[in-house]
Amino acid sequence: MSSFLGSSVSKKFVMAIFGLFLIVFLLVHLGLNLFLLSDNPEPFNKAAHFMASNPIVKVFEIVLMGGFLIHMLWGIILQIQNWIARPVQYKQMAQTQISFFSKYMIYTGGIIIIFLLIHFTNFYFVKLGLVEGDHENFYGMAHELFTIPAYLIFYLFSFLILSFHLNHAFQSAFQTLGLNHNSYTPTIKFIGLLYSILVPAGFAIIAILLYFSN
């Protein structure tokens, strides 16, 4: 098993699996956020409470957190290995036409980590009790946060970056899992493109609506 995790292909497998898992979670999270648009705080808070207390969700939460950590950690390890693999850089910048976003995954990933740290401080660590806050009213906390223009701008920026990250990530995960096929891959790439635009856009629109509704 250790060798399974050890090889380059295995590490990428782990990246892809957890990446896809996070992609699915993102959709769930977006669904959850839609409740924020309601004037009634109850549904959102209930959902948040459910997420916090349901034992099955608890298990998922651990997997999810583990997923985040492993995806980040593995990503960093792979990147360091990649840097080491070319100790002397080319003088002339690479001109090969490749997907713009695929070149900067470590950087887009890094920005997302920063966002997540702030996001966790605001919400998740509150839930865990690590940071002070009102456990029962995440709805209120969210609405309050989005009144701050700086926060909103940072939030929008983060989701733009997430969109970039997803743009390459979606189809890349399929390729890593060995799912590349002359007839299906164009469809996968198209879905990936849609996903990478629509889902972050969904988050962004909710945030903008919240800002203007307050």
Binding site: S7, S8, V9, S10, K11, K12, F13, L78, Q81, N82, I84, A85, R86, A94, T96, Q97, I98, S99, S102, K103, M105, H168, Q171, S172, Q175, T176, L177, G178, L179, N180, H181, N182
Partner: peptide, 30 residues
């Protein structure tokens, strides 16, 4: 280094070898 599916190899390969092979390699490996 590790493959990050950028496709630069395929774009430059003088024999136009496709990264479909890399996906097949991954399947074979798993």
């Amino acid at each position: 280094g590790n493959c990050t599916n950028t496709g630069a190899c395929e774009a430059q390969c003088p024999k136009n070898i496709s990264i479909i092979n890399i996906a097949r390699l991954n399947r074979e490996y798993f």
